[in-house]
Design a protein around this nucleic acid. Sequence first.
RNA 1: GCCCGCCUGGCGGAAUGGUAGACGCAGCGGACUUAAAAUCCGCAGCUGGCAACGGCGUGCCGGUUCGAGUCCGGCGGUGGGCACCA
Length: 868
Amino acid sequence: MSDTATPAAEGPRYDFRAAEPKWQQAWADRGCFHVDDVPTDGKPKYYVLEMFPYPSGKIHMGHVRNYTLGDVVARYKRARGHSVLHPMGWDAFGLPAENAARERGVHPAKWTYDNIAAMRTELKRMGLSLDWEREFATCQPEYYRHQQKLFLDFLAKGLVERKESWVNWDPVDGTVLANEQVIDGRGWRSGALVEKKQLSQWFFSITKFAPDLLAALDTLDRWPERVRLMQANWIGRSEGARLRFDLAESAESVEVYTTRPDTLYGMSFLAIAPEHPLAAQVSATDPKAAAFVAECRSKGTSEAVIETGEKLGYDTGLRVKHPFIEGATYPVWIANFVLMEYGTGAIFGCPAHDQRDLDFARKYQLDVTPVVLPPGADAKTFAVGKEAYTGPGTAYNSGFLDGLEVDAAKRGAIDALAKQNQGEGVTNWRLRDWGVSRQRYWGCPIPIVHCDSCGAVPVPDSELPVKLPEDVTFDRPGNPLDHHPTWKHVACPSCGKPARRETDTFDTFVDSSWYFARYCCASDTTQPTARAAVDHWMPVDQYIGGIEHAILHLLYSRFFTRAMKETGHIAVDEPFAGLFTQGMVNHESYKSAEGTWLYPEEIEKRPDGTAIHKETGAPVTVGRIEAMSKSKRNTIDPGEIIARYGADTARWFILSDNPPERDMEWTESGAAGAFRFTQRIFRLAENLPAASDKPADFGAAGRTLRRATHKAIAAVTEAWEGFAFNVAVARMYELANAVTDAERAADEPGLGWARREAIEAMARLCAPAMPHLAEEIYALLHPAAGTLVADLPWPEAEPALLIAESVKIAVQVMGKLRGSVEVPPNAPADSVIAAAEAEPNVARALEGKRIVKRIHVPNRIVNFVISG
RNA sequence: GCCCGCCUGGCGGAAUGGUAGACGCAGCGGACUUAAAAUCCGCAGCUGGCAACGGCGUGCCGGUUCGAGUCCGGCGGUGGGCACCA
């Protein structure tokens, strides 16, 4: 070592507790991360956005990961010469605030703003390169007044509808859930079993954009393929036919949607959803039918069915006529597997070519007639057993369709139906309109007044915002806005007579469907978006967040952006040009002998991997690694980690563990290892010799180190660029190892200069990940400069130093490695092959064989193909 | 049931079709220390061999190729999304 060793018992040399606040202050003082709404600096723009947090009160490791990833991108792009918009705010409406009000008597607003204050402090400790001047919370009237304006503009454009419809009622949250928000028959937030209930509510007409929302997925080439697939499946385009079946005994008819009109001749029944109007009609006079319908409703959507897999039906006794076969009629069943929300709420059953229909037919002994003959099958012997045939083939047993392939038969059937005026080809979508009415207090009021004379009347722009009243009580279930003694009583804006305010508030997904646009012009109080600013910054160049938002939030935001474009508030169609979905942060879980979950700090790990309870010494079961959750007590508080190791260590470990799109495991030893690294590179910086002029020539050690430095610059740049953040970290460890080697090498002229070069490169390369340490080291190297790393351009590798002095070529015989030879880079093939043949171990393998072929890949490999 | 992803040492993982296991974590051995901590040096896929050197090896089976973790086909496992979607 060229310097005295670290004295014993001395604390960490790099004092992050002093350094981190110091540099955070320096960045703030210089306004490093501020950008103008409409910049005039001529730099290319780059908008980095991480999904804004719900203010629960404390940040968790998922936030640390999310915001670290975003900060790496923001700082890197900034160094690359972009003007970077990197804002932060709060998704501040939502049920937890109301739950807190009900449980603890604290007002939702106070609870929310207190939480925001606490979380802002914690976030600021992370040292993120944010423009805090753009901060807002969606619960501020200054934000939601513009949202109300957007709603009114959408309404005027015909993008909002009020519909009477069956809704999912969450009895615990006392709120309506969109179908998309019901999971296994339970509310996605409350977990309560959902009941069906009919309500009148507001819908955004997202289905009007279904074709475009689907088609435009192809343009999102910087989105993960699987997210695009998930959205495509969710939108669910299908081609089929809508056709009318006439009832045999009356003039009425039933409309059916099918994707397989080619199998009409294989029909054996017609089935309708329990919510279908015809089912209600039958139930009116048939108590058994009524009982069956009631049973289906109380069973909820799917859970019981999933468990039993049983398809249940009730034969109404009604019969329908076949559109093609004169005189043929089929029974009409009410079936629990037919969805009212999809297609027309009625299907025709062709058991031979649909598995569900087949299961149903077998259960109730209905006919199974195959009408599609698989290629090569014999029409006389082909039969359907327990598996429906859904593959390609030729129509048979199908009258005029006989002999046609599936696609041709579909067209033939549709043409015939159209000719008879009984049906037509249609495109069907799985996507449904977005119901946004919520019967709760802590949300954005829907700016509508209900008048007995005029109906639903929009609140005039001049009266916005419709503010939430502050004096509300939570002493009974239901919506406090509805209970409020005066708030809802207003004069009709249209006729002036007494009328009532809409007491529903918006789904909080509305708040998060346009916040990214608002950030661009957060200080403009007059309008939702200032076009010059929004047109400059949008779309978001890199959006980063959890995969759990792959469908709803992203799809709603895509809809909102289109609706805002139609109403003149934005120029783009797509809000997010680039999307990155991060994995979860997991941790081991621990259980005591009594079966209770234990916090990580309550246990002590032993070298063999087992664990004991710290206080009692009792053995502890080390459970599986799973998502951090309060109930499992396997949470790690980022605040404590930052207090103990500093923000840079937390950021570094979270980047280093694994690729950012995968789930990671937070480990104590990994965090400690990251901390050691921060100390190590600081020590390498402290041990540097004094600055000197760049020498004309370097010795062997100096040349080796300089090559390592410039290779690292190239490799880390590529890794940051490609979201291979764990690889970037690995390359910096390699550089640190190279500096350590140089530190230990015999001194030679210029080596000190090379070491300083390496450490300066290290500081600047690691700055996106460890910005405080980077500043500290840079200041150590340039005490008088007064320059911040945050303001420096990105380092460039010298191309000449990326070329190795010699390369090691692997030599294979028949694809098996037999040795290697050291040759100059780009050496001529002849000389490389000659050297390879001469290598002793290779020569032995070649002895007595005939070389059939010599393969030479420059700078990489030689392979001999031999015979005999 | 449908759709998607993933599968590499004890662990996280690296690897434009070209020396599999970089880098880190954990581990082992050593140096320093009265001792510990910290730090530094070294070892480390499995297997045979004293060694030189060999055999096997990226979930399994096959294919393409001079050469496959990587490309293709099939199978298995695992994780996720959606789900009676007609």
